[in-house]
Amino acid sequence: MTAPPDLHHDADPCEALIALLVRAGDGSLDDAGDRARLDRHLASCAACREALEAQQAAHVALATSFDVEPPLGFATRIAAQVQAPASWFDRFDFRQWTWRAGPVAAGLALAAWLIAASSETTIASAGGDLATVADAVVAAEAVLWSDAMDEADLVSLAWDDTVQPDTTGGDEAGAQ
């Protein structure tokens, strides 16, 4: 059942009936209680009767104006293209690499630092710093592989690739 509008307390009862009007307009107002509530209102509101007529007319016009006949072999063509090798950029799959290469990058950084440090100072004098850097690397890896950085973020990153921001703007008059 659709959330029942309160005709006695809403400032504009017609506004409160939008949820019922849109459903009645496309024939999906199935709940008998909602239908009776709407009918009672329509009996005394010419504006809503006109609005309902417009909803029905627009729905019918749209529902009958897009007769889609997919081109022959469309599905087969898509399936073949999906199986075909993707571009080098897609195959590289940089997002996965970004995360999986984290520990490797950390190890390389540590090795580079060790080489640089050994060439400039004695092992003894660098001992304390080495421990600090090793701790930092371990901590960085822990963050990389923590739950917070796991599935949710990977999904979010993937999402960024396929879903663009809704730039439509405009005011939203939530009817509920």
């Binding site: 949820a19 849109v22 417009a54 008059a173 509920q176």
Partner: peptide, 17 residues
């Protein structure tokens, strides 16, 4: 939200009509 969907469809059909 679903209320926004209802509002958009209501206004969209009204404008289309």
């Amino acid at each position: 939200p679903i209320g926004t969907v209802e509002s958009r469809i209501f206004r969209g059909r009204a404008r289309l009509r």
